[in-house]
Design a protein around this nucleic acid. Structure first.
Lengths: 118, 118
DNA sequence: TGATTATATCTAAATATTATCATATGTCAA
DNA sequence: TTGACATATGATAATATTTAGATATAATCA
């Protein structure tokens, strides 16, 4: 099938999309937004005080998460409610958490070994 | 314990570290480097032709992965070998892959529904 | 020792991201 | 319709990232 000839282009494109998703996750404020959305859909008016920060700034970050396909929004009267599209995103965040913890533990072990030598 | 008073600072700091790890993953070239490292440790001289790009640029991206605690390097004679520290990072990449595929499928379904209406 | 090789670092220009402020949009209620 | 409210968008300045080229470092070999 002719489509296979385009595999390298498709792969490149997929790498780019993946990088864009990671990029959307690469900001403390956006991670905090997702932390809030972990317990379910939520109104922007609740997200703003939770994460702390300017209304327009939070709105910007929500737009970044939206464009990356991580969350979707829905208007309910005056309010806008956001929710995570695919909860697999939380698995990712949890794995990163574990990675960081074991990294810190490794650091601690090395530090202890160094201290004992003196 | 007094340490609990610092929880919010610690949380903030952890969010920042997490964001930094995601940031390290947020580039097609770095994802491609990790793709190469999935099969095990690898020399820079193999990574460069695999990912394609300037030597200095690849070296820079390797440094970013190193600083984020995702890979480590070891000198072997003239060569430098890199390897992934914690293979959980691949689980993350695989989950993102699945998310993207199901997102694309959802898009396709919606598109089909729209087409049928006309 | 000096040349060669592999990789890292520095520099600068181009580009992207972030935060803030100002303004626009859309919804409701009087 | 007008005004108030919740949220989004646009413009801008500050900052960070990316890339390529030039140079530096460190290991090996003649």
């Amino acid at each position: 099938m002719i489509i296979f000839r385009y595999n390298h282009i498709v792969n490149k494109e997929i790498l780019k999309i993946k990088a864009e998703v990671f990029n959307a996750l690469a900001h403390p404020l956006r991670l905090k937004i997702l932390e809030k959305l972990r317990s379910g859909a939520c109104c922007v008016c609740k997200i703003i005080p939770y994460v702390g920060g300017e209304q327009s700034n939070v709105s910007h970050h929500l737009a970044i998460l939206r464009k990356a396909g991580i969350v979707r929004s829905e208007k309910k009267g005056l309010e806008v409610w956001y929710e995570v599209i695919d909860s697999k995103i939380f698995e990712i965040i949890d794995i990163i958490d574990k990675c960081i913890v074991s990294n810190l533990q490794r650091g601690k072990t090395i530090l202890n070994a160094l201290i004992k030598r003196h």
